[in-house]
Simulated scan of single mutants.
Amino acid sequence: MEIFSIDIAIVEGLQRLQVPVANQIMMFFSAIGNAGIVWIILALILVMRRKTRNYGIIILIALLITAILGEGVLKNIIKRDRPFVALSNLKLLIAPPASYSFPSGHTASSFAAFGVFYFLNMRYKWVVFLTAFLIAFSRMYLGVHYFSDIIGGIILGLGVSYVVCSYYKKNSDKINSNKFIKKLLN
């Protein structure tokens, strides 16, 4: 069975499982993932506290790089149609996204944030993972992404966060976030 056949089978199978309560839950998780807003808010909260400021900045950097690579580069090179374009029988519960399908931006940003929590061994990493997972799953459930789009988003998000966290670990003694923040504000 080829990947596209598996993708279609999963999307169509999830369509058959849709029920009102689950629909509301999945629409909620999809919405908080729009433009990575939940992760940006989390990062800004971390930036406000001196003790966690570097972590917030690292998340913001990982989100920015992930967005550039995923939304700006990969989607426009690959140009994969979304499931609701290829499968006219899908029932959409949200407004159809205008961008291409691969990789899932919601998933990439969610796993970029989770990756920072994981690779830096931060508290609450498993809460962040559960939220990231539900955001990613919601995109398939709602028929706006294929399973392979989700896998691509996970790989992109974790890959970027690994590189950013590795750089931070190697250079953390040279990085002074207070000076960085002051420069940004002036």
Score class of each variant (00 low, 15 high):
residue 67 A to S: 15
residue 68 I to N: 07
residue 69 L to E: 04
residue 70 G to R: 07
residue 71 E to Q: 14
residue 73 V to G: 05
residue 74 L to F: 14
residue 74 L to H: 07
residue 77 I to Y: 09
residue 77 I to T: 12
residue 80 R to H: 11
residue 82 R to F: 04
residue 82 R to W: 08
residue 82 R to E: 07
residue 83 P to Q: 06
residue 83 P to C: 05
residue 86 A to Q: 14
residue 90 L to Q: 06
residue 91 K to W: 06
residue 98 A to L: 15
residue 99 S to A: 15
residue 101 S to R: 05
residue 101 S to D: 10
residue 104 S to R: 01
residue 108 A to P: 06
residue 108 A to L: 07
residue 108 A to D: 04
residue 109 S to C: 11
residue 110 S to D: 12
residue 116 V to L: 03
residue 116 V to F: 03
residue 117 F to T: 02
residue 118 Y to Q: 12
residue 119 F to K: 03
residue 119 F to E: 03
residue 120 L to Y: 08
residue 122 M to G: 07
residue 122 M to A: 10
residue 124 Y to I: 12
residue 126 W to C: 01
residue 129 F to N: 03
residue 133 F to W: 08
residue 136 A to E: 00
residue 137 F to G: 07
residue 138 S to D: 01
residue 144 V to M: 09
residue 146 Y to L: 04
residue 147 F to A: 10
residue 147 F to S: 00
residue 149 D to Q: 05
residue 151 I to Q: 07
residue 153 G to P: 00
residue 156 L to K: 00
residue 157 G to C: 04
residue 158 L to T: 05
residue 159 G to Y: 01
residue 159 G to I: 05
residue 159 G to N: 00
residue 161 S to G: 04
residue 162 Y to V: 08
residue 163 V to W: 02
residue 169 K to W: 02
residue 169 K to M: 13
residue 173 D to G: 14
residue 173 D to T: 14
residue 174 K to P: 09
residue 175 I to V: 13
